[in-house]
Structures are given as C-alpha cells and as structure tokens.
Design a protein around this nucleic acid. Structure first.
Length: 425
RNA sequence: GCGGGUGUAGCUCAUCUGGUUAGAGCGCCGGGUUGUGGUUCCGGAGGUAGUGGGUUCGAUCCCCAUCACUCGCCCCA
C-alpha cells in the first residue's frame, strides 16, 4: 500500500506559488496594521486546555478543539483561536505594559470541523487588538484598520459591508425590555443569529415556541424589523450602547466608510464579547458570508486574576479573505522571489562563479542552471518557473565581461556589464 | 457530529440503460544536428476506473462498506 500524498484533512500544502500568495496577503496585512502603530507578537501553538474552557463558548472547546494529554499528564490544546492567548500574555505583564497597547499576530489556528468552502481545519488569522481604551475610539480605530486592509487589496466599498451591533444592548433588550429569562435569551440569540438563513415561517414559529407570549413575540418581531438605530422604540433610544453605536456610526461615516450598517441580528459566536460587535460581510451573491469580525471583550484579561483591561479586537481569516479576493478578482499575479535565471552555456560553471558571486552581493536573487543541458532546455525551465529574465553566461561573455540579458516576455536581448545588469533589474 | 452529491491519465472530462486491447483535449517527455524558450510539425510515456467486498457468464457502470473531495446543517473565520 503506497503512502498517501494528500495533506491532512482540512489542512493545506503550500507549494511555492501558494506560499507566494500567502506572503502577499500577509505582507499586505502587516503593512496596513503597522501603519496604525500595531506591533507583531507571537506565542506557542499549544496551550493548556483550561485556557479555553473558561470563556470561549461551549462548542468550540468540547467539539472543535484538538486536544491531547502529554507525557506529563497535562491536558493540552492546539489553539483554536488567539484571543485567550493574547489575553494571557497581557495579563502576565499587566502592570508593566505601555497602554494603549496595539498588538497584532497572524497565527495558524486549528478547529476540528467538517471542511467546506471558506472553512478548513487549519487556517491563519490576522488578529488585531487594542488594550486599554475604554472609549469607542478603540472600535472606531479597529474598524478603520479592517477597512484599510480591504482598501489596500483594492476592494471597492461596494464589495463589502460592515455590520454593527452591541452585545450589551441585546442582553438588556432580552432582560429588561422583553423580560425573558436567561435560557430564553440564549435560545433567542442563537435563533436570531441565523435569521437570514432560516425560513421566515419556521423562524417565527420558533420564536413563538421560545417566548410563549404574544406581546413579547410582537415586540421582538418589531425590533427585528429595525434597519437602523432610529427605527428602535423610543424607550430603547436612551440605552448607552445604542448611543454609542450611533456615535460610532457617525465617526465611521465621517471617516469615509459609507458601507456601515446597524444590524440587530448580528450576534457573534464567542461568549466573551461584552458590548459593541462588528462583522465585515462580502456582498457578492456567490460568497455572501462573514469575512471577519470582532468586538469588545473587556472581561477576558481579568480572568487571569488581574485588574481588568478594556479590549477591542478582531480577527480576519486567510481562507475567507482569499475567497473574497478571488470572487472579486482582486488577486494579482505574484512574481517569484527569484529575479534572474542564469543559463550557463558550455562548461563554464567554475569560471562563472565570480560573476555569480558579484550579482548576489549586489542583491539579486539568482537561480543558476547547473545541469549542463542544452540552452533551449535551460530557457524552457526558466519559463516554466514563471521567471521573466534570463542571463546567458558562456565563454564569450566571460571573455568580454558583457552578459546577454534576455526578457522572456518581450523576447528582447541586451548585452550588459554586471554593473549595468544590476541597475537594469 | 448530521444529511445530499461526486470519485476514470498530472489537470478538465468522454466511455450512448453491464459486453472485445477504457478515449480526447491540455500538460509532460523526446526529436526537427551541436549558444536562445513561448507558435508549429513529428514521435512517445502515462490509468489494477479511490480502496475493499458482493451480485453476474461478464462490472468504470448495479449493491454494501470504507476513504477522500464537495455542498448544506450545526458552529464559525
């Protein structure tokens, strides 16, 4: 039985052309978040299982986390998300860190689930967090960062929509406005979260079943029709979170983000969110899904026994981002890291070394064809690698110290000294 | 974890209700004479039909199992 060449289920091999694309995406993200003053951190892929048990939500720990017991009998998890880790890191140095803290990371994360479009078992996720800002300047900044990343990828604002809501608002609506109990609130939240995917009739019937009260049902249906903050009942207009949402919306509009909307059905899966949450949606019908999201989670750092630190963060997955860029045809051709393919003509491997050394010293990335095969084969190899520039080095060139540079795209050749060659590229 | 679909050459797919040596396009390799690719021409390699069972005189085709991929659900990025 031959060994399988397939990568592990739900995980990807990155061949050089795939890796080039990944590097392009990550470098673009890095460039943008660093422009906003965020600094990169990292951490181990393994964490103690307890880290996730506390606050991530039931499902992700019980069913979606890769776990094992190590030789020292410790329960270990492969990180399914980065937020608990970064909270742990901040808590560990709570007193000595300079706030506001702007941190980012691009970790690979593992979740045990059924792979499908936009969702694999291993993915990379840009995590951007700001620690130590109580005001909604934090939310504003992070949404600007998310938007700036998509702008850097040249995505028109019509291709995505930024949805805003508040977890606090929803909690208070359930508790004080609708006056339903905890279990009902939880069930309703889950249901509302998938309202757009549920059949309208089934949706309403399920609400009936959960609320068991006609007035509550009517009020809730009314709320769900709200398209903007102003549509909500006057009684709720006084709610702090709603005022904040309105302010945030104005701030974003003033920043040129014309594609932000209030969406009362936005819930977000993790239990640790405490107030404003947001998600960026792809508006394309073929890929209508949440690309990334985040929100405020003021309580997480305090779980480590230190004073709380107000925090806002978001995550952006590489798979969903790539789907988005592909769907909107925003992925450019990415050139190889190699600048120049060296065709050796005749038996000149040894004599060519000084010239090769000089070219490398001047910063060119060279791939030398040291096979000794015919020149046409060598050129074909360069072409197949997707390289555009080829230089010929043979007896003649070495004698004259003039080298023939060929552009495989235009077919033109030029005879150049090493100096000129370097300047040319 | 649950439900549906698919699985034939490296890739995309044929093989007409089970019937001789399973085909094509693209790709790949070699050649059109020795220092210039991409076009073109000629030639060639490559498949135990995902895997294992079963039904049948006979299975790529029907049945079962299993694995993989894929779509949806759950959940989420």
């Amino acid at each position: 039985m031959a060994l399988s060449t397939q990568p592990y289920k739900g995980a990807r091999d990155f061949y050089p052309e795939d890796k080039r694309l990944q590097k392009y995406m990550f470098n673009t993200m890095r460039k943008v978040v660093e422009r906003f003053g965020y600094e990169e951190y990292d951490a181990p892929i393994l964490e103690s299982l307890e880290l996730y048990a506390a606050k991530s939500g039931e499902e992700i720990v019980n069913e979606q986390t890769y776990t094992f017991t190590d030789r020292g009998d410790r329960k270990v998890a492969i990180r399914p998300e980065m937020t608990p880790t970064v909270s742990r890191m901040v808590a560990a140095k709570r007193q000595e860190l300079p706030y506001p803290l702007r941190w980012y990371s691009i970790p690979n994360l593992w979740r045990y689930e059924r792979p499908q479009r936009g969702r694999l078992r291993e993915h990379w996720q840009l995590n951007v967090d700001v620690f130590g800002l109580k005001g909604l300047e934090a939310e504003h900044e992070l949404i600007l960062v998310a938007d700036a990343i998509l702008q850097e990828f040249k995505a028109p604002r019509s291709t995505y929509e930024i949805k805003l809501n508040s977890r606090q608002l929803m909690d208070d609506i359930f508790k004080d406005y609708l006056k339903v109990d905890k279990q009902q609130a939880h069930d309703l939240a889950k249901l509302i979260d998938r309202m757009h995917k549920t059949d309208a009739k089934v949706f309403k019937e399920t609400i009936q079943e959960i609320t068991k009260s006609q007035p509550v049902y009517d009020s809730l249906i009314d709320l769900l029709h709200a398209k903007q903050v102003r549509d909500l009942p006057a009684e709720l207009q006084k709610h702090d979170s709603l005022k904040e949402l309105e302010k945030l919306h104005k701030l974003l509009q003033a920043s040129g983000l014309t594609n932000t909307v209030f969406d009362i059905t936005l819930m977000r899966g993790f239990d640790y969110y405490t107030d404003i949450v947001f998600e960026v949606f792809d508006t394309h019908p073929d890929n209508n899904r949440s690309m990334f999201g985040g929100g405020r989670y003021d309580g997480l750092v305090a779980l480590f026994g230190v004073e709380p630190v107000p925090t806002v963060g978001f995550g952006m997955g590489d798979v969903t981002l790539q789907n988005f860029l592909e769907t909107h045809k925003l992925l450019p051709e990415i050139a190889s890291e190699t600048d120049l393919y060296v065709v050796l003509v005749g038996d000149v491997y040894e004599q060519a070394q000084p010239a090769l050394k000089e070219l490398r010293a001047k910063g060119l990335n060279l791939a030398v064809d040291s096979t000794g095969r015919k020149t046409d084969k060598q050129i074909k190899a360069a072409d197949k690698k997707g390289l555009q520039k080829v230089v010929f080095i043979g007896e003649q060139e070495l004698a004259d110290q003039k080298f023939t540079l060929k552009d495989l795209k235009t077919g033109q050749t030029e005879s150049l000294t090493l100096e000129q060659l370097v300047n040319h590229l």
